[in-house]
């Protein structure tokens, strides 16, 4: 386990190094002056700019510039947004929790829909149910996410008027900002309309979360199906059968457990797809998250925001990746072994 931890940590360190290097070099790739792109000070005078480039060590070597950039990131200073002139670290701290909330709920939704369906398909392999589930998986995987979002808005928000179509909570509710995670903030607040606010927020998250969840759910169906079929083909299942266990017993006691462990590994990999879908869905549903903010930054040519947004979002994805790897390794001793060529 120690060696595994060490390997993962070195991978993490290396990745962060590359990501920060990429993010730093973007300020040179983007059009305009590197110092303005880095700091976001679009209205600065000549003297202020000179002072800034002193602070950012712009006249020194590339390596020392990068070092100063890293130091500032660790102090939580990512410059100010070119569009709003507010500190980017504050904006990200406000927006990232909304995205995390949305993506985690979608992930849970996708897993609770996809994994059981995949298991059912594998258990009834080569029968009608298997085919139905598989065709659902292929169609669900092929639907463009923005189109699905618009359709659900048309049906559930406009024709049926059941669910709201924009934002994450009705403006009537005033929730004090504590953690940034809306649901936790609502529960922490001591307003008398706490539960109304909670249900309202819940109604707001259903549509975007299900839009995001559809495509990953279909991927989970396939992964769960192949994991289950793999497990069912092993010799310990055969041994259990010869012991005289019924099919239900075999599946509940042996197959599901072992197949579930295999699934954990894929969650980290699927997460980056999920974030992509979340970015598009945030635009459609006007969700106050980091994806919509990033896409708006492109319209506004807010290079400082794009640069830091990339860094934060991809580190977030990578951290989730590493965490799932660790969970997988703690649950499954086989994965801790050093595999060559992996």
């Amino acid at each position: 386990m120690l060696q595994f931890t060490f390997r993962r940590l070195s991978l993490f360190f290396f990745t962060m190094l590359l990501l920060s290097l990429l993010s730093f070099s973007l300020s040179y790739f983007f059009p305009g002056d590197a110092i303005i792109n880095l700091s976001g000070q679009v209205n600065a005078s000549q003297e202020e700019l000179a002072l800034l480039s002193q602070q950012y060590a712009m006249h020194e070597s590339f390596f020392s510039q990068y070092w100063h950039y890293l130091l500032r990131i660790f102090q939580g200073d990512m410059g100010i947004s070119m569009a709003s002139q507010l500190p980017i670290s504050d904006e990200i701290a406000n927006l990232l929790p909304a995205t995390i909330e949305l993506s985690i709920i979608s992930l849970i939704l996708a897993m609770s829909l996809g994994i059981p369906l995949g298991f059912i398909a594998a258990i009834f392999h080569k029968r009608a149910i298997d085919n139905i589930i598989l065709s659902f998986a292929i169609v669900g995987y092929s639907i463009p996410v923005f189109w699905l979002g618009l359709f659900l808005i048309l049906i559930f928000s406009i024709q049926l008027a059941w669910l709201p179509s924009a934002g994450n909570i009705s403006l009537l509710f005033e929730i004090p900002h504590v953690t940034g995670f809306l649901f936790i903030d609502i529960l922490l607040s001591n307003s008398e309309y706490k539960w109304q606010a909670f249900y309202n927020a819940l109604a707001h998250i259903i549509l975007p979360a299900s839009v995001i969840a559809i495509a990953p759910a279909t991927v989970f169906i396939r992964l769960a199906r192949s994991a289950m079929m793999e497990v069912l083909a092993t010799s310990y299942i055969k041994a259990a059968k010869t012991k005289g266990l019924t099919n239900a017993q075999i599946i509940y006691r042996h197959a599901i457990r072992n197949a579930l462990i295999k699934m954990i590994r894929h969650i980290g990999l699927q997460f980056s797809h999920l974030i992509t879908f979340a970015m598009i869905t945030e635009v459609i549903f006007n969700w106050p998250g980091i994806g919509r903010w990033l896409i708006e930054s492109i319209y506004q040519r807010d290079y400082t925001a794009i640069q830091s947004g990339l860094l934060v979002l991809s580190s977030f994805i990578f951290i989730v990746h590493i965490i799932t790897d660790f969970i997988y390794a703690t649950l499954n001793p086989l994965a801790r072994e050093n595999k060559h060529g992996s």
């Binding site: 992509t276 990339l310 979002l313 994805i317």
Partner: peptide, 22 residues
Amino acid sequence: NHFLDVILSIPTLLLAIIIVAI
């Protein structure tokens, strides 16, 4: 391979957005 892992961990759409921004 490490370098590839890093690029693979960035979602394709995000990567595309960065390149479009440049």
